[in-house]
């Protein structure tokens, strides 16, 4: 899976996206930093409410307004500061340079337009061209995502094609303007297993052909294991651990990552008992002042509850936010006896 990776294309530094609601300030993204190189695949893993989707929406400056605002940090795409751009300039970025695939193809396609028209719509915004050549581009786009008989399919409506096919069409729209960065937000959760495997393979082939930088947003460590080069684990708005994919699996260093990895059953071996994390994530409008995982962490002490840990380096490019790493500490796998 080791591919040659190119220059840094996207740099996110200390990103804070807050939602200002009636009930208080929801700190959806609270200090997330990462960088992404061309041809690289980054996985952002977390549970619902961990801030992974808000991070992705922030990159496109599509956070739900007026409630949500990017309050701090910087996002640089090939050196340009996206947060300094006007709305008009952002429109030239969305779809053209950073593009996104959403979870449910059922709702991301418009039911009253043919798939050809929807592809053309996306292409047209960035490439002014005659109708005939746009249709040709649309057919070309469908061919790229391996839709059979694309000449006939362009005239189909979304309800006439299957879920897997729809997600391919969404993919075709996303890559139609040759973006540099593609964000895939749980792109396969609504697909069946064998169709998911087809789709993941397709994404990888497209990536190899175009040197695309991919961001995979997922809750599934299986997708991370299969697709990603590097991983960020998010918990309650913070990136609690990040590093190369093998390091994360072999030496998970944040208790949350450890617990998550040992709470997933395996297909390849018998597990006597799964570790289960007690409790639930904290409410984002009422975060504890210390480590956000402290209330559920079996190792937490007083300091964890009062002071947010800084990031400790545990390997090359591998960091985790946990006070226990201050002293040299080899993480032990969780035993299943505590449930």
């Amino acid at each position: 899976m080791s591919r040659p990776v190119g220059d840094v294309i996207l740099e996110v530094d200390d990103l804070h996206t807050y939602c200002f609601t009636r009930w208080g300030v929801v700190k959806a993204v609270d200090g997330v930093s990462f960088s992404l190189r061309q041809g690289e695949t980054l996985g952002i893993v977390g549970e619902s409410g961990s801030g992974k989707t808000m991070t992705a929406l922030s990159l496109l400056r599509l956070v739900p307004r007026p409630a949500a605002r990017i309050v701090k940090g910087s996002i640089r795409l090939a050196g340009e500061d996206l947060l300094a751009k006007s709305e008009r300039e952002m429109r030239a970025v969305r779809g053209r340079r950073i593009s996104m695939i959403l979870q449910d193809p059922q709702t991301s396609l418009n039911p009253v337009f043919t798939i050809g028209n929807q592809l053309i719509e996306a292409i047209q915004i960035h490439h002014k061209d005659g109708r005939g050549s746009l249709v040709r581009r649309a057919i070309e786009g469908l061919k790229q995502v391996r839709v059979a008989a694309p000449e006939r399919r362009v005239a189909d409506y979304p309800h006439q094609i299957s879920g897997g096919m729809k997600q391919r069409v969404v993919g075709a729209i996303a890559i139609s303007c040759e973006p540099k960065v593609l964000i895939a937000d749980e792109p396969t959760t609504s697909l069946d297993v064998t169709i998911q495997a087809q789709y993941l393979r397709l994404l990888r082939e497209i990536q190899q052909a175009t040197n695309l930088a991919l961001i995979f947003i997922t809750h599934d460590f299986g997708i991370v294991a299969k697709m990603c080069d590097r991983v960020i684990v998010m918990y309650a708005g913070r990136a609690v651990e990040s590093g190369p994919v093998r390091d994360i699996f072999n030496r998970p260093s944040h208790p949350y990552t450890q617990a998550l990895l040992s709470s997933v059953p395996s297909m390849d071996e018998d597990v006597a008992r799964l570790y289960s994390i007690a409790g639930q994530p904290p409410a984002l409008w009422d975060l504890p002042e210390g480590c956000r995982f402290a209330a559920r962490c079996p190792h937490a002490d007083d300091r964890c509850r009062h002071e947010y840990p800084r990031a400790f380096s545990v390997g090359e490019g591998h960091t985790a936010d946990c006070w226990r790493l201050e002293k040299e500490w080899t993480p032990r796998p969780f035993s299943a006896s505590t449930s």
Binding site: V193, T194, Q198, R201, I223, A225, K226, D268
Partner: peptide, 25 residues
Amino acid sequence: KALFSAALPAHPDIAREEIILSGEV
């Protein structure tokens, strides 16, 4: 076999023999 091979691995080092089925059900 195809269903199992399409399942996501629990570790990046688990390489399954990939049987990608053509077409859909």
